[in-house]
């Protein structure tokens, strides 16, 4: 019992650390890839982290017309996003916050984050914030629908309603075949969309015609901007990690390797040290996979052009269709 608790605390701390620390780095990897692909050397990989720290130290300028919402929202969304990150298995099969990982709660909490940000964007009364907010809600409408379909397929295959369990078990389900690939494609589109990357959104622009997320946070500054940006990075991290963990699972590998290294043949009853080792190995595997994904996304960003805003729903509709097809394919052996 005590052992379980200690293990939980360890995993919680480890996962929180991984999420908080590596999410800016993941962003950095993408930026770096883009820079290299466009023939520049670019900023170091840890640059996003520096940015966040810098913003934290700065003074805050807020709109005259803002209300209490503007200052509350960054903390709230940060907290919620952190919690969401803690509710999915990331570095090991254990989940720090199991109750949040019900697939429907997961989706609606995610939407809550979006809603809060959109609300804060409207609170300041500027034109750009509203523009971004409006676009974000439109995209959100399609994204969450497609997400619902995609996650449902995973959860249905997992035989439970818990997203956390299903993420672990999905990769183990054999004879998925075509369904697996269809879902992979759907999920990838969603990851791109949720991260706010090209071809859905361009995070590097501050042009009113194109920006979505950047528009929303335009009036933010100082620590609030930092919290909001960090939230966005954590969101990217959440989806990217989910993607790699669902489709390229390495749980058994890290578990087996940990058991082997520690000298236990039966890896069902790993000790605390084994757990630590397993999480460390899991982290390493995760980082490797994420590095690969980051490079792929960076590559995609430099290869494709940003879509017209009104074309984006078609992309997401394609994701939805792919998910539905995948579901159909999983039903018919």
């Amino acid at each position: 019992m005590m052992n379980e608790l200690i293990r939980l605390v360890w995993i919680t701390l480890a996962q929180a650390f991984v999420v908080l620390f590596f999410s800016p780095l993941f962003n950095g990897v993408i930026q770096k890839t883009k820079a290299l692909r466009t023939g520049r050397w670019g900023a170091p990989v840890v640059q996003p982290f520096y940015d966040l720290l810098k913003w934290f130290k700065k003074d805050v300028t807020l709109a005259e017309t803002h209300s209490v919402l503007t200052v509350c929202v960054p903390y709230a969304v940060f907290t919620l996003m952190l919690l969401l990150n803690m509710s999915v298995p990331m570095i090991s099969t254990a989940v720090p916050i199991a109750w949040l990982s019900d697939v429907f709660v997961f989706i609606y909490v995610l939407a809550t984050v979006v809603v809060l940000l959109a609300l804060a964007a409207l609170d300041q009364g500027g034109g750009f914030g509203a523009l971004g907010s409006s676009r974000e809600m439109m995209l959100n409408f399609f994204i969450e629908g497609a997400l619902m379909a995609t996650l449902l397929v995973i959860v249905y295959a997992g035989g439970t309603e818990s997203l956390a369990l299903s993420i672990v078990t999905y990769g183990k389900v054999t004879n998925l075949g075509i369904s697996y690939f269809l879902l992979l494609l759907a999920f990838f589109l969603l990851v791109v969309a949720e991260m706010g990357r090209i071809p859905v959104d361009n995070p590097d622009t501050h042009l009113e015609l194109t920006m979505v997320h950047e528009g929303m946070v335009l009036e933010y500054s100082g620590r609030y901007l930092s919290l909001v940006m960090w939230t966005q990075m954590m969101k990217s991290w959440l989806f990217a990690s989910m993607f790699v963990n669902v489709f390229f699972p390495s749980w058994d590998l890290s578990k087996a390797l940990a058991a082997f290294l520690i000298g236990q043949s039966n890896y069902e009853t790993v000790s605390f040290a084994g757990t630590v080792l397993e999480t460390l190995l899991g982290t390493i595997f995760l980082l490797l996979k994420m590095l690969a994904l980051g490079i792929i996304i960076g590559w995609v960003e430099t290869t494709f052009a940003k879509m017209r805003l009104f074309k984006v729903p078609q992309l997401l509709g394609a994701a939805l269709m792919l998910a539905l097809l995948s579901f159909l394919a999983s039903l018919t052996p």
């Binding site: 805050v60 300028t61 300041q124 500027g126 034109g127 509203a130 409006s134």
Partner: peptide, 29 residues
């Protein structure tokens, strides 16, 4: 935090309540 209150940025002109988004504009897309 040291908070400074400023008018919102409205492309260089002083902002007016009418510049704010309207109901239809918000859901136009």
């Amino acid at each position: 935090p040291k908070v400074v209150h400023e008018p919102i940025w409205a492309c260089g002109i002083s902002p007016h309540p009418h510049v704010q988004v309207t109901s239809y504009a918000y859901s136009q897309s």
